[in-house]
């Protein structure tokens, strides 16, 4: 429908909408996050839901302790290799439609701890992530910004066609491989369906040190 016509009608007291808009409007304004904090960022997540920042203004204050009742997973903090299987399992247990916010440098890439032997270098190696928030830890405002970004993303999703959300595609995967504990590392160390090492622009031609300096 033409936007001008729609706003003209609204001035006359007639609200015209589409099923898609109504459906997405409902979805985006009642995101229930999973009550699940991993590390430092979780404290800022709590601060975001407290009086000063008040995430409830954006319809996302109902933190649910059970993954079955939640539809937004905020990965707030360092994911260690010992914790990664549990995080993936929690994601698998959430009902569609489900979204992931990767909060903080650690959840994105391992952050300051990425040299660690027990630190997973980014949760996106196992599960798809919708919004990344940089920062160590990100301020509550940044979390609110990520939430609004996610709301805009949900709002734009068409209900039909190839770009429709995953829960409307019967054959789209909803569960991902849960890694096992191996003798030296997790097995597999990443899920190739979700993540592949980005191509690095370096020269491998022996003694040629291009890119070194």
């Amino acid at each position: 429908m033409d936007e001008n016509l729609k706003s003209e009608l609204r001035k006359q007291g007639i609200v015209a909408t589409t099923l898609q808009e109504l459906y997405n409007w409902g979805r985006k304004n009642s995101l229930w996050p999973l009550n699940f904090g991993l590390a430092c960022c979780a404290i800022e997540m709590i601060a975001a839901s407290m009086a000063r920042y008040d995430m409830a203004r954006f319809g996302a204050e109902v933190f649910r302790p059970s993954p079955r009742q939640a539809d937004l997973m905020i990965v707030a903090g360092t994911v260690t290799k010992k914790m990664a299987p549990q995080v993936v399992r929690l994601y698998n247990q959430m009902a569609e439609p489900k979204y992931v916010i990767s909060m903080g440098a650690c959840a994105i890439s391992g952050g300051p701890f990425k040299q660690g032997y027990n630190v997973l270098k980014g949760i996106d190696r196992y599960i798809p992530v919708d919004v990344y928030i940089p920062g160590c830890p990100p301020r509550p405002e940044a979390l609110i910004d990520a939430l609004m970004t996610l709301q805009k993303m949900i709002d734009r999703q068409p209900l039909t066609g190839p770009d429709r959300p995953r829960h409307l595609q019967a054959d789209a995967p909803s569960e991902f491989i849960v890694p096992e504990f191996g003798a030296h590392d997790l097995d597999p160390s990443q899920n190739p369906e979700v993540w592949q090492a980005p191509l690095v622009n370096i020269s491998l031609a022996g003694t040629d040190d291009a890119g070194n300096d």
């Binding site: 890439s109 391992g110 990425k114 032997y117 270098k121 980014g122 030296h184 590392d185 160390s189 990443q190 090492a197 980005p198 690095v200 622009n201 370096i202 890119g211 070194n212």
Partner: peptide, 11 residues
């Protein structure tokens, strides 16, 4: 284990 993060501009 060899699971280093590959930066776009490694040095």
């Amino acid at each position: 284990p060899d699971d280093f993060e590959y930066e776009p501009t490694p040095h």
